[in-house]
């Protein structure tokens, strides 16, 4: 397991960042990362040896997240997964300037759009690795990326104009 520790530890900050951007809750994000690492360890011998370790871990994390969403929906559970972000939204000092929190805007996108923006834009995965994580062809990654950006742009624009109107 020492070799697992040496390979996995350096990737934990990035996994926590992705998990937090998905769940927007610090404790839930760390639970998700812990589940991911446990799964990675129990499948360690089966992992692909072609160096795509990062893509493999992001895949496990995302699938774990999607499965937990599905479970929560089936149980009709209303977990307050966004309560961190409620504080962030009001009282943010730059709100008056019309700069909406880009993370809060990201929350309004569906998971697949959110993930593609995060994996490519923030985690800097190659389009090939992102295609592995998302389980879709590279062409779909590209078109999803461009659609997700378009939606984010539109939402940020609207946010800005309503903010400006309110400030005037």
């Amino acid at each position: 397991m020492d070799d697992a520790a040496a390979l996995l530890e350096p990737l934990i900050p990035a996994l926590r960042r992705y998990a937090y951007a998905l769940t927007r809750n610090h404790a839930a994000a760390d639970d998700l990362v812990q589940d991911t690492l446990e799964r990675a360890l129990s499948h360690w011998m089966l992992r692909r040896r072609d160096g795509a370790l990062r893509a493999w871990l992001f895949t496990i994390l995302r699938n774990t997240y999607i499965n937990s969403l599905r479970r929560a929906r089936r149980q009709g559970e209303h977990a307050p997964i966004n309560d961190d972000d409620a504080h962030a939204r009001d009282g943010a000092p730059d709100a008056a300037l019309g700069v909406r929190d880009v993370l809060a805007t990201l929350d309004q996108l569906p998971e697949d759009h959110k993930s593609v923006l995060l994996l490519v834009g923030v985690e800097e995965l190659s389009y090939e690795d992102a295609s592995r994580v998302l389980g879709v062809p590279v062409g779909t990654v590209m078109s999803r990326l461009s659609r997700a950006r378009q939606r984010l742009r539109a939402m940020l624009e609207t946010g800005r104009t309503t903010m400006l109107r309110r400030v005037k």
Partner: peptide, 9 residues
Amino acid sequence: QRDALRASL
């Protein structure tokens, strides 16, 4: 947008 996302995380 991408830079803002990176900065906020």
